[in-house]
Computed example of a mutant assay.
Amino acid sequence: MPPDNPAPPAIAVDRLVVERGGRTVLLDVSTAIPAGSVTGLLGPSGSGKTTLIRSIVGTQKIKSGTVTVLGEPAGSKGLRGRVAYVTQDAAIYPDLSVKSNVAYFASLYGRSRKEAMSAIDAVGMHDHAGQLAANLSGGQKTRTSLACALVCDPEVLVLDEPTVGLDPVIREELWNQFRDLAAAGRTLLVSSHVMDEADRCDRLLLVREGRFIADDTPADLRASTGSANLESAFLHLIRELERTS
C-alpha cells in the first residue's frame, strides 16, 4: 500500500503556460519531480527545455500556471542557496583561478574557503585549483561551474545540457557525480538532447513543441511503447502524436 502521507515533490509544475516573443513556448505542462532523484529533461533544440528550466529557477516570466520548488514559489527569496542552476555556458570568471572562482561564490552564500575546496574536490578539480579558468578545457570549465553551484550545498540542482560537447569519458564521470548527488538526497533536473543519457535517469520528461509527450521511468517508457531502447520509444511517441494530431 502507498504511504498515507507521501513526501511532497521537490518540484511541482502545474498547468504552466509561457509565451516568448509572441509565441507560446510551453503549453499547459504539468509534472511533479520527487526529491532525491535524477530527472532527465529531453527533447530537440527549441522544444522548450530551457524555458522550463528558467521557469523552475524563477528567471522566466510565465503567463499562467504555477511552479513550486521545495514548497515555495519558484524564484522566492527563501530558495536562495537551496536551489542551484548550472547554465549551458560555464558561468565562471576567466581571469580568476578555479579556487578563486569557487571561493567567490562561497562568499556569496556565507560559506568558508574550506567549503570551497571541498566543492572543488567533489568535482575532481583539486589538481587544477590554481589554474586560470581561461586555460581550462570544456569539461574542466563545466566541473568548475558545478563546484560553484555545489558550494552552497543546494537541495535542488538544475543543469542545462551540462555534457554538451564533452567527450564520452568526461560525460561518464559527470553522470557518476550526478548519481552520487542524488544518492546523498539532492534533487537533480538535467536537460539533454542526447538519448543515450536518458537511461541514467530515474525519470524522464520528453518535450516536443512545448508539450510533454512522456513523463515516466525509462523502463516503463520502453515497455509502454514496446521499444528496445529509449530512442525508439521517443520516435514511437512522436509518430503517434503526428498520427493523432
Rank of each mutant, 00 (worst) to 15 (best):
A84M: 07
N176M: 14
R208Q: 14
I33G: 09
E197K: 13
L237P: 09
L189G: 09
K141G: 08
D167M: 07
A183R: 15
P162K: 13
E115T: 09
S76N: 02
P2K: 07
A90R: 06
P218I: 05
M117R: 15
I33D: 10
G165S: 12
L235Y: 11
N176H: 15
G110L: 08
T244G: 00
D180G: 10
V158E: 11
R208C: 04
A12F: 00
S30I: 03
G210R: 10
A91I: 04
S232F: 01
L241C: 06
P6N: 11
S97N: 04
M117F: 11
D28G: 09
A103Q: 12
R203D: 03
G75H: 03
A228F: 01
P8F: 08
S137L: 13
R15T: 01
G81T: 08
V102F: 05
S227E: 11
D89S: 13
V151Q: 12
A219L: 10
R80T: 14
G138N: 13
L189I: 14
R222S: 02
S145T: 10
G58H: 06
E161D: 06
L96N: 02
R111S: 07
R243G: 14
R211I: 08
S192E: 05
E72Y: 01
K49G: 07
L157W: 07
R113F: 00
S107Y: 00
P2V: 10
T225Q: 02
A35P: 06
K114Y: 01
T87W: 04
L146F: 02
R186N: 08
T68Q: 12
I62Q: 00
V151I: 03
N229K: 00
C201I: 02
E231C: 00
T66V: 09
R15S: 10
L146N: 06
P8G: 13
I238C: 13
S76P: 00
E172N: 14
L159C: 07
A233F: 06
M195G: 05
L188Y: 10
L221S: 09
L70A: 01
E197S: 11
I170H: 04
S30C: 05
T225L: 02
P34F: 00
D180M: 14
A214W: 03
S118L: 12
R200S: 13
V98R: 03
G21I: 04
I33Q: 09
D95Y: 12
S191A: 14
M195C: 03
P44D: 00
A134P: 06
D180T: 15
L159K: 08
I170Q: 08
I213V: 13
L27Q: 15
S47W: 03
T244N: 11
P6M: 07
L235N: 06
E240R: 15
R54Y: 06
N135W: 07
F178H: 13
T39G: 03
L221T: 03
L206E: 04
P6L: 07
A32S: 12
S30L: 05
D121S: 15
T217F: 00
R113Q: 09
L150S: 09
D14S: 15
T24D: 00
Q88G: 03
L206W: 01
